[in-house]
Amino acid sequence: MGWLSQSLNSSIGKKFVMAVTGISLILFLIIHLLNNLSMYLGPETYTALVKSLDGIKPLIRVIELVLALVFVFHIFNGVRLWLENKKARPGKYAVNGSVKNSTLFSRTMIQTGSIIFIFLVIHLNTMWYSFNFGEAHATHDYYYFVAEAFNSNIIYSLFYIFAMIVLGFHLNHGFQSAFQTFGWNHKKYFPLIEKIGFLYSLVMAIGFASIPVYFLFFYGGN
């Protein structure tokens, strides 16, 4: 299998790994957002939905493991590419011309990615852990747990909203970039892919951020 690791560690191979894991995460986020938006259906429906997932817990654990691996590969490869690419360009230009030739989204993937990583660690600790093993799991009051988490902690909510805007930035470049990496850049369809990517990023950022906004400003408690 030497050829496989050689291929995936080549410059194009590393792009490919970023694209495959990136697309997987893009698909995962759709499922995640749908789950989050179901909060708008009310406490009973949401709690029932979360509880119904208990029945397929073993399957969910397997999916979570795959997801964790995808995250690890995406993050590891991203950081590695960033380090290698910095080495390939040791000197900086006196005048930064990049504003004129590329988008902000494409130049800031490591920065936006790092903020999302920090968010991910906090998010896993507050939400995922609590839903699976902690307070929310014990009381089965998933809805009120989330509501309280956002309503009672403005700093946490604001950071959550900020991270979701940053996520939108990251996705806006990542979406079309993955298609380019796969070689699917066609004159007829690529402008459409870019537009879909922008729309997708907008929906994700607004969708995810709407939950803390809702509980912070429009939620009156019990």
């Binding site: 410059s11 194009i12 590393k14 792009k15 590419l81 290698e84 690419n85 080495k87 390939a88 360009r89 011309g97 990049s98 004129k100 030739n101 590329s102 988008t103 494409s106 130049r107 993937m109 470049h173 079309q176 970039s177 380019q180 990496t181 796969f182 070689g183 699917w184 850049n185 066609h186 004159k187 690529f190």
Partner: peptide, 23 residues
């Protein structure tokens, strides 16, 4: 380095080489 699809190359290329070649 590795390509991260910023497309700065295409913008600066004096001959207008397209990034569809990279694809």
């Amino acid at each position: 380095g590795s390509c991260t699809n910023t497309y700065a190359c295409e913008a600066e290329c004096p001959k207008g080489i397209s990034v569809t070649n990279i694809a």
